[in-house]
Design a protein around this nucleic acid. Structure first.
Lengths: 234, 234
DNA sequence: AATTGAAATTCATCATACATATTATAAAAT
DNA sequence: ATTTTATAATATGTATGATGAATTTCAATT
């Protein structure tokens, strides 16, 4: 008989228990972003398990982008910026079709996020969005790939919803994106920058409807630009 | 000097490389859902690394819900159903506020998914939705918690979009949900079931606007019911 | 043909050792 | 005294062997 795939997995793994406990501490803020986890040895004692179990638990946290290990130094809780924690899912999406599918999912999410951000954003969050805007422009001037700045802008909006699930979902989706075809076309980048500015203005003005509309236009434009840029590279 | 949090992580970890290779094979379908991964020993030979590395890589895959290990049997690629693969993120959301935030994110996502499903669903997917509907009703009759059947329904719609990112995002968000307050209130469950039916009908009729509207109403109702049920339990 | 039960397989965990990167400390040089 | 350099201590990364627990395989028995 061939191997069947069914029946649930058995009892709890120790590593799962450790993973969940650490995840709990991170989500409750007991382990804030930037904080250093206990050393493996300390966790071995603290949880009463072997180092193998601790390391597998940390590996699970890493896969979800929650921590980042630095040899010789320690394991640290990552901030909200996903830039430096690729986790898994970095090499998906070989095809244009997948990229467009991703945009399709991002669209309703980010449109709604823009609307909510326009209603709830604090002054500090407004400034964070503005800062991301500036970074984007600086990247263009310095001829640097503006991908990080672009992500920073969208993340800043997600965080301005004051609902961390928006940012979480966006990070999750962003992880699945591989490097988009980079263009240094000034017109292209200027158009993106202008769209960003309009979104930011609508959020600053606390105009949810306009923020939604501008975000919708921006993402629709991104899709179109992405198609063109990708097809050019063939 | 105190411990600083900066500077990117160094060279590649072996476990990361193995994780990415396995992830690639899964995403390309070389390892299809239900398929059994090579045994640890085989992977040790295949990748030329230690068991430690292999196990940490598998742990990372598990954390993202991609695989499920069964002691004595093997490690299997999970299907699209997240039911039996909790991964990490199972004990979040202690508060009502978090639950409502989660609904807020699910709403735009699922409304759009319903609309797209109404446009793209295949006959098989239409039947899968209908099947989930039946499971929900059966659960009610048998006095079983209909949580799984509820998730099955929403997942069936996400899959009917023919855009796997919808299902992925939904699974990701569902992972963060802890057991909602279970009610065996027949009226409550009948109301949910009726709403499900109307959504399913709109999708069957290929009426995107109606599907969106019914999904919006359903989720809004769920939020209201969730509030009431939670407050009752205090 | 069905059941039982031992053996082989496979993941789960533990313990130990060594490698490598970082940080802390002390020595040395200026 | 301050800076530099070398050394030691610390922490993660990897490898290996051993044992436990759950599952599967398969032959023996009924």
């Amino acid at each position: 008989m061939d191997t069947k795939y069914g029946m649930p997995a058995r009892r709890t793994r120790l590593s799962h228990a450790v993973t969940e406990e650490l995840q709990r501490q991170i989500s409750t803020g007991a382990l804030a972003p930037g904080a250093k986890l206990p050393t493996e040895q300390q966790m071995v004692i603290q949880f009463g398990v072997s180092r193998t179990v601790v390391r597998e638990a940390v590996s699970a946290l890493w896969a979800n982008g929650l921590v980042e290990a630095r040899q010789g130094s320690g394991v640290f809780v990552t901030g909200s910026k996903p830039h430096k924690s690729p986790g898994i899912f970095s090499e998906d999406m070989a095809s244009l079709a997948s990229a467009l599918e991703l945009f399709e999912v991002r669209m309703p999410l980010e449109i709604e996020a823009a609307g909510i951000a326009a209603m709830r954003r604090s002054v500090a969050q407004e400034l964070a969005i503005q800062s991301a805007l500036d970074h984007f422009k600086t990247s263009i001037i310095n001829n640097q790939p503006p991908l990080e700045a672009d992500l920073e802008f969208h993340m800043a909006i997600a965080e301005a919803t004051n609902n961390h699930f928006y940012a979480d979902a966006l990070i999750f989706l962003a992880r699945r994106t591989i490097a988009r075809p980079h263009t240094s076309d000034k017109d292209y980048l200027a158009a993106v920058s202008a769209e960003h500015s309009r979104i930011a203005s609508a959020i600053s003005d606390q105009n949810p409807e306009l923020a939604r509309e501008e975000m919708r236009r921006h993402l629709a434009g991104s899709i179109k630009r992405y198609r063109v840029a990708t097809l050019k590279n063939l």
